[in-house]
Design a protein around this nucleic acid. Structure first.
Lengths: 253, 253
DNA sequence: CAGTGGTCTAGACCACGTT
DNA sequence: ACGTGGTCTAGACCACTGA
């Protein structure tokens, strides 16, 4: 008996479903179009709703679909490229890069892990600036920027009582410093409740967490933790224009 | 009736469960330790197994747990930092960076999207090199490197019949070219069947897809599509050492 | 073989947005 | 009020690993 090709196991239903749906999306649906509801789709494919949902979840994870409770499931536009690492190092807030200040919780309590990143001692006052990044009219990222008070001594006395005005002051002071370098990492996470609200997603939604450390000669002057919507964003780093790709880049060769 | 604090909606069970488990992991479990099986955990918390699984899935997504069919659920070590963007641009294969050549499918059929990235015409021959990146004894990434034959003219005649030897030859030829720049993007995806096998994960597992374009004066000389295990990897970019963080960085402030 | 996680079902109820 | 997706249940069977 020749070992031709029949040692493959039965493909899970939801996996096969995903493939079928994916092809249907390419051929029969336009961006923004709404799909039939889950109960009907499940019936049409002859599977339980939970199984259908497993396929939809994957497609949403890959940025093909957008689902909203109370509304429906729509075909998502291609992911937007969001520039994260320009060639030149720069402080947050320099040039209009799509970030909007939301709020600042002055001298707030900071988690031990962030303190460790800052190389700061517990109890040390830290300015905490909350910002949102908007692209194509949609919120794509929420950021928490941590700036030890020691990094921006100019603010020690002249202070507004916290709020957007003060946040801007913190950024302004930062930009006066000489930036020696920066450090960045990207990992997968799930949206905390506050970030989820900012990003118009449910808590637990997949996000790309970008952690950046800003260095001066004196050490780590600031740390930024930015969470990007993983479903709609493609983070771009590089010299030249953003890479233009779609999910098809990874289609079976 | 004072509107004290009771407009909060009931937290989903799986979300609360995740929090409880997360704290238990911090306090009562060591890295590598195995958890009780799903049926017992579900019973212990008084929920259905599906609900418990929803919590476990999130924790796995966040890199806190590792689950393997037939084996069990174990506490995952902190994510490993994997350097992706060194300061200097470099061709793939330069310096020992943990990549291992697996195979090369010479002049294989290439998806239209990749061809578009390459700026190449359909039907043009493209060398396709398959590599794996190993870190700490574990496969963390699988890569497909596309090199149009036109980029490495030195290989046109002197050829082995495809295979690791030829793959090495392609990389060697690449490194002779003057690299003008590169372009990188990161997005969330789910593992294709072949990548999943390489990474010892199930198909559909979450991965970080890093797409890199390599430019010479003549245009795009090569494109790399690397898929990293999202559960175990933290991609690092930057001048200095990798950022050292844990999930705690994003703990509620 | 026994035990694990992975898949699947057929129902129920809930939270949300729109009408 | 209605229809949507989100949560949850209590079961069943399957695929894989290891002893």
């Amino acid at each position: 008996m020749g070992t031709t090709q029949l040692e493959t196991v039965p493909e899970p239903k939801y996996w096969h479903l995903k493939t079928v749906l994916s092809e249907a999306l390419d051929q029969d649906f336009a961006v923004g179009e709404v799909l039939p509801n889950e109960r009907e789709l499940a019936a049409r494919f002859g599977v339980a709703r939970a199984t259908l949902r497993q396929a939809l979840e994957q497609l949403e994870l890959e940025g093909r679909l957008q689902r909203r409770r109370g509304v429906g499931t729509t075909v998502a536009p291609p992911r937007v490229g969001v520039a994260v690492g320009s060639t030149e190092h720069s402080w947050p807030g320099e040039s209009a890069d799509g970030w909007e200040i939301v709020d600042v919780a002055d001298t707030a309590v900071v988690s031990p892990a962030v303190l460790k990143l800052l190389g700061a001692a517990a109890g040390q006052p830290v300015h905490t600036v909350r910002r949102t990044r908007v692209s194509h009219g949609q919120a794509v990222a929420a950021e928490l920027l941590y700036v030890p008070a020691a990094s921006v001594p100019g603010l020690s006395a002249i202070d507004a009582p916290a709020g957007p005005a003060r946040a801007r002051a913190v950024l302004r002071e930062l930009q006066r410093l000489a930036l020696d370098g920066q450090d960045r990492s990207v990992e997968l996470g799930s949206a905390r409740a506050d970030d989820a609200k900012e990003l118009d997603r449910l808590p637990g939604a997949p996000v790309l967490v970008v952690t950046t450390r800003y260095f001066t000669a004196a050490g780590t002057a600031a740390v930024s933790v930015a969470t990007y919507r993983a479903d709609t964003c493609r983070l771009t780093f590089g010299d030249s224009g953003a890479v233009e790709i779609s999910h098809e880049t990874r289609a079976a060769s």
